[in-house]
């Protein structure tokens, strides 16, 4: 029976209708934010979902597509939070400049760190990224200028309205999906997938491993930073523990694993589930982490490809596929 299913063609949903659907969905979301059709509470959910999609998408780009499983993306989250806080509270700049600063700082740090980190592979790379993030946490904890462990408040008057934060998050989210999707459909995307599957072989057939890694790492750093910057604007205060904490990576792994690693639609599904679960579990103090953990274990055991990965395999379709051809069309 399973053989028969495998013979069925894969439908890649990326034609013009799909594009129209995407544009329509995004326009509706913008309208919902900006015309204030949604309640503040709905927008609170939307902001979280958009930002987690962006972060999940970036982690997935690193781990799911390029085979660079980073446990240290919180480094860029912390840096972004502090960039925005320093820009607004210390340098008295606007929020926009703060967000640009957060991206700039993260890109520079990513470029410098790449020289160090890319000497390592697999498990060693993962651990090294985590260690670097921890080191930065300790640095900010003892840095007088950022008031050490007391945290830094983001001071802007007037504070941006929730619909503005929501619209900006949506923009970043759409951009991140578009960048990942388009990147994967280029020559680079093919190179990345080859690298993930077998690094030596990819290198042997002429994939420039270092350049590919660098490109992906810097893109991930930039988008993670801008989404984190918006996240902290929505929160109002950043602490070393809240910026550089490992719990960020745990969330990203949850989102990508549940949704489906190595698919563009996976992190979208994962983020929606994650945010709703988080909100639901708040009613059960003490239990939330246990339940979240149990769900992750169940999914890893029984749906190792995640929800979207499994669905796509069973129903033989792909959304936002990295494939540049569709079996269905060729038949």
């Amino acid at each position: 029976m399973s053989d028969k299913r495998l013979q069925r063609p894969v439908r890649v949903l990326d034609s013009l209708p799909m594009l129209i659907v995407c544009i329509a969905v995004v326009s509706v979301l913008y309208a919902v934010c900006l015309l204030r059709i949604a309640s503040n509470n709905a927008m609170r959910y939307m902001i979280q979902i958009f930002l987690y999609i962006t972060m999940g998408q970036m982690w997935n780009l690193l781990s799911g597509f390029a085979g660079m499983t980073s446990l240290g993306q919180q480094l860029y989250i912390g840096l972004a939070g502090y960039s925005v806080a320093i820009a607004t509270a210390k340098l008295h700049l606007t929020l926009g400049v703060g967000l640009v600063m957060s991206v700039a700082v993260s890109v520079v740090v990513a470029l410098v760190l790449s020289l160090l980190l890319f000497r390592m592979e697999g498990m060693y790379f993962s651990i090294a990224t985590w260690v670097v993030a921890e080191a930065f946490e300790k640095l900010f904890l003892s840095w007088k200028y950022v008031e050490q462990g007391s945290g830094l408040t983001i001071r802007v008057v007037p504070y941006p309205k929730i619909e503005e934060i929501c619209a900006v998050s949506l923009t970043v989210c759409v951009m991140s999906i578009a960048v990942v999707y388009l990147l994967l459909r280029t020559r680079t995307g093919l190179g990345l997938t080859a690298m993930r599957d077998n690094l030596t072989a990819a290198s042997a057939v002429g994939v420039n491993v270092f350049n590919h890694k660098l490109l992906v790492y810097v893109i991930a750093a930039a988008f993670t930073a801008v989404s984190a910057g918006i996240f902290f604007v929505n929160k109002g205060i950043v602490y070393p523990e809240s910026g550089f904490g490992i719990s960020w990576t745990v969330s990203m792994i949850f989102i990508v694993t549940i949704g489906g690693s190595g698919t563009v639609s996976g992190p979208i599904t994962g983020a929606v589930i994650y945010v709703f679960l988080q909100e639901l579990l708040a009613h059960y103090p003490g239990w939330s982490n246990i339940i979240l953990g149990a769900i992750t274990i169940l999914v890893i055991f029984f749906l190792p490809k995640g929800i979207m990965g499994t669905l796509q395999e069973k129903l033989r379709f792909e959304i936002f596929s990295a494939k540049r051809f569709s079996f269905a069309k060729h038949k």
């Binding site: 503040n40 609170r44 809240s242 904490g245 988080q278």
Partner: peptide, 15 residues
């Protein structure tokens, strides 16, 4: 966790 503090405070107010 400080992030959770703000999240829960926002939830209390908005939801």
């Amino acid at each position: 966790d400080q992030n959770t503090c703000t999240e829960m405070a926002q939830k209390l107010i908005e939801e």
